[in-house]
Simulated scan of single mutants.
Amino acid sequence: MDLNTVLEVCDGRDRVPWRPGDAWLGGGTYLFSEPQPHLRRLRDLSRMGWDPLRRLPDGSLEIAATCTIAQLSRFGKTLDAQAAPLIEQCCRAFLASFKIWNMATVGGNLCNALPAGPMISLTAALDGRCLLVAQDGSERAVPVADFVTGAGAKDLAEGELLRSVTLPARALASRTAFRQASLYSLGRSGVLVIGTADPLDGSLAVTITAATVRPFRLTFPVPPAAPALREAIGTAVGERHWYDDIHGLPSWRRHMTLRLAEEIRCELAGDGAR
């Protein structure tokens, strides 16, 4: 779609003052999908020169905000880590064409903050931390689970830039379980639940996305019994947190979340159920 209110596109590296009507341009798959009448200038990040993916000395994985879904998918297939299959599972949750895969970015998916954003699901489940850079160059780190604050809402100040998301080595070494549900065979995720089992202390984390307006990551020092898991979800996720749109009613999303979370608990706790 033509953005007929945009008068200028500038290089993201240019040190021009931020002004009302500015927006960061990553892949553009959202920006160019619908009218953006409030925008006047796009600040293009395509020439920033950031490595899409980097293994850091401590074993963690840094994912640049400009990393595309296609790049992440290819990397995940070669990654030597217990949690590597989860990368492809979340990439596939896009249900998007190869054109979208080659343009859409991890950072864009997080900053759109849509409940069904699968990069939110992936990075929240693996305890990711966002690196945010302000216009004055100052930086701050925010857990992904706290970065997305609601449907379409995020902890991002005016002019602030999401530079990267880092997944810790310990999370990459976790055993994972993935469950997804939709009302349609090729529909947007209505429920997406991911479990991670820590290899060092045996703790379990259950991350709920798509069904809720923001990510919920529940951690347990040991795998809980079924009633305890159900109670923890009911306590953490209030009635106002269940998302309501054409892709699923809140009651259905809650029911499926509880069902899929129990499947994950059984799988990762070794209870024998699948």
Rank of each mutant, 00 (worst) to 15 (best):
P37Q: 06
H38W: 12
H38Y: 12
H38P: 05
L39G: 04
R40E: 11
R41A: 08
R41D: 09
L42F: 03
R43F: 05
L45A: 14
M48G: 06
D51M: 13
D51N: 15
D51P: 15
L56E: 15
P57G: 11
S60W: 11
S60P: 14
L61H: 12
E62M: 14
A64M: 10
S73E: 13
R74T: 09
K77F: 01
L79P: 10
D80H: 13
D80C: 06
Q82G: 05
A84Y: 08
P85M: 01
L86Q: 11
E88A: 14
E88P: 08
Q89D: 15
C90S: 05
C90W: 07
C91P: 01
R92M: 13
R92Y: 13
A93E: 07
F94V: 05
F94E: 04
L95R: 13
L95C: 10
L95S: 04
A96I: 00
K99Y: 09
I100Y: 06
I100W: 03
N102C: 04
M103W: 09
A104F: 01
A104C: 00
A104D: 06
A104W: 06
V106Y: 06
V106W: 01
L110E: 00
C111D: 00
A113F: 02
P115L: 02
P115A: 00
A116L: 04
A116Q: 11
A116I: 03
A116C: 07
T123Y: 03
A124M: 01
A125I: 06
A125C: 08
A125R: 08
L126W: 00
L126H: 12
L126I: 01
G128H: 02
R129P: 00
C130F: 04
C130K: 02
L131R: 14
L132V: 15
Q135T: 15
Q135I: 07
D136A: 10
G137H: 10
G137E: 07
S138R: 15
S138M: 09
R140L: 11
V144F: 11
A145C: 10
F147L: 02
F147P: 05
V148D: 00
T149Q: 05
T149N: 05
G150I: 02
A151V: 01
A151H: 02
G152D: 04
G152N: 02
